[in-house]
């Protein structure tokens, strides 16, 4: 038992220490409750569709997934127009054109919420880290020298519109968080059943084990 305790302490210490690997971010990430309700995700989709989509594609999101976030068939058909239902969400600007205008290829956003440490918080912080420089231009505190123009005009917004932009950023984070792992809800709800089953099974096996071992006569060797 003594050893068990020691080893588990060591392992806990290791697990606590290891994810704390150095982040090179220039500023700490904002605290954020990631919304997971259909309304936020839908609003986030609209934000993506009317802003981000001009440069950023969602290569791994197909129109056929959109009913999962609560859009009906008519809405999905309207969105996809003449594209196939299994087509992915393309940006309206070609990569080459974007590269010419902004000097970088805008990254695909399908996995962005997983492709950064603390992805959702990272995205939210990035979107709300724009500020106005003294010479009138803008920059980003999280990613200085960012090539992406301030998408919501956060750097020049007044206090009231900042609150509205923050709400929009939260919604788009909710949507991108869904996009990075569309089966997360299914996974978590299935997990409850699996884990409940295993808890019951472990308990029963423990009882059976104790019962079986009770049959055993006492040991012969004295050192046991």
């Amino acid at each position: 038992m003594n050893i068990l305790v020691k080893i588990s302490l060591l392992l806990t210490a290791f697990l606590v220490l290891s994810p704390a690997s150095a982040s090179t971010a220039a500023m700490p990430l904002a605290k954020l409750d990631i919304a997971n309700d259909k309304e936020s995700i839908q609003r986030g989709f609209e934000v993506y569709y009317n802003n981000c989509r001009f440069c950023h594609q969602l290569k791994y999101i197909k129109y056929q997934y959109l009913p999962d976030i609560g859009f009906d068939k008519a809405k999905v058909d309207a969105l996809r127009g003449s594209q196939l239902i299994n087509a992915s969400l393309q940006s309206t600007m070609s990569e080459a054109a974007a590269n010419e205008v902004f000097g970088a290829i805008p990254p695909d956003l399908s996995l962005m919420a997983k492709a950064r440490k603390q992805g959702p918080r990272y995205i939210y912080t990035l979107l709300t880290a724009y500020y106005e420089k003294s010479d009138g231009g803008y920059d980003n505190k999280l990613m200085p020298g960012i090539k992406m123009p301030d998408p919501f005009g956060y750097s020049v917004a007044n206090e009231n519109s900042k609150v509205a932009i923050e709400a929009e950023a939260k919604d788009v984070v909710a949507f991108l968080n869904w996009a990075a792992d569309p089966h997360a809800d299914e996974r978590k709800s299935l997990g409850i059943y699996v884990i409940t089953y295993l808890i019951i099974l472990s308990f029963l096996l423990y009882v059976i084990m104790k019962r079986v071992w009770r049959r055993l006569p006492p040991p012969v060797s004295e050192q046991l």
Binding site: R187, K188, L190, G191, V194, I195, L198, I199, L201, S202, L205, Y206, I208, M209
Partner: peptide, 17 residues
Amino acid sequence: LFGLSVFLLIYAFFVFY
């Protein structure tokens, strides 16, 4: 079997959560 069940419990926690 009991050990396996306990292991699967921990494993399932990581797989699902």
